[in-house]
Design a protein around this nucleic acid. Sequence first.
DNA 1: AGTTTGATGATACGCTTGTACCATAATGAA
DNA 2: TTCATTATGGTACAAGCGTATCATCAAACT
Lengths: 207, 207
Amino acid sequence: MPKRVDHAERRRQIADALLRTAATRGLHATGMREVAAAAGVSLRLVQYYFGTKEQLLLAAMQHLLARFGERAMARARLGQAGRSGGPAGPHDIIAAILTEALPADEERRTFAILSTAYLALSLTDPALAIAPLVKNTGSVIDVVAGQLRAAQHAGDTPAGLDPDLEALGLLAIAAGLSTSVLSGNSSVDQAQAVIDYQLDRLFPASR
Amino acid sequence: MPKRVDHAERRRQIADALLRTAATRGLHATGMREVAAAAGVSLRLVQYYFGTKEQLLLAAMQHLLARFGERAMARARLGQAGRSGGPAGPHDIIAAILTEALPADEERRTFAILSTAYLALSLTDPALAIAPLVKNTGSVIDVVAGQLRAAQHAGDTPAGLDPDLEALGLLAIAAGLSTSVLSGNSSVDQAQAVIDYQLDRLFPASR
DNA sequence: AGTTTGATGATACGCTTGTACCATAATGAA
DNA sequence: TTCATTATGGTACAAGCGTATCATCAAACT
């Protein structure tokens, strides 16, 4: 048998190149040749590791979402470390998720742009319809709702509100603010203020 | 001079065809030939009335936004007529705008899909960067903020809150819920419930 | 009545796209 | 060493795109 190479690493490298290029040139306008050039490999290699463009798009999106999850978790740990000694609480976790969705630095801006582009594509392209983005968003909603329930049991949050509805609302706000910042209709600070305001409403004690 | 034809009408007809096609096939994937076929005219005519594709896109988007504004105003009048005799108040106007942004029927769904697609395009395509969508969204925010201010002066809304920040938050929620419904992460009823909840928070008396 | 000019049709061109195909260097097992 | 298989490169192809060009029909003004 011939030369063995780390396929996972190569796929990650190429997927990264796709994300990098698509963030500036647009997801739909990014061709396989461009990805190959950005990754420093030949067009043939992109085909070899991903076959079709659709599979490349799907893999790249899963990669993007995975990185988002990691950053959100890291941010939750960071937010918790700054105040208490115990594990990250509901408020920290939810705040971390919402803040991570805001395009405040280049990495998050890239995520926001690509999420929007991918959503737009998946709305009309039947091949992307069973999108990883939708599934991922759904599980994030579940996480937030779960944290809200935990906070309710702990008495940190009003018992009257509906955790699922509040979770949906929070993520909708985060998504909406993200596009608002992206399109220049609001500043990052304004968006953060709206998030803080809604969090204060849900966690009255943490003020 | 030769046959005179209503240019505005023709342009509207072609722009409508673009919107209709792009709502199902995707904005980026809709070509000029497809638009021509959908409008029942020749490719040459599309070129004649719009010149380049970019101008067609811009004109179609302005048309889409204009129709959205008209529907929102009609909805505001409708909401007001059901309850009082006077002119539509701040609550009715804001509720109408937020509800109109929700993809509850085919027309609003088309609007939501195309807004998303156009936003995604304008984020990376420098030619669409000075987008009518951004400008329009900004003026809608101003309208909402103005209505909130009026409600504050009338005592219908807590005096403590920041009208601009609340307007930004409301439209972010509407936009976020719209994408949430589009991607199947929530039902229209859930989204409407979130909107009603936020409106009740701002207009305690109208409950 | 004629002619100028706006409105429309048909078609060709250059470019880019995704994909497929053919070739070959390199390497672990026999 | 030989061989079979993985990994890689180069290139060709058909289709689609936006745009430009050439040609024609029809009506309003002189």
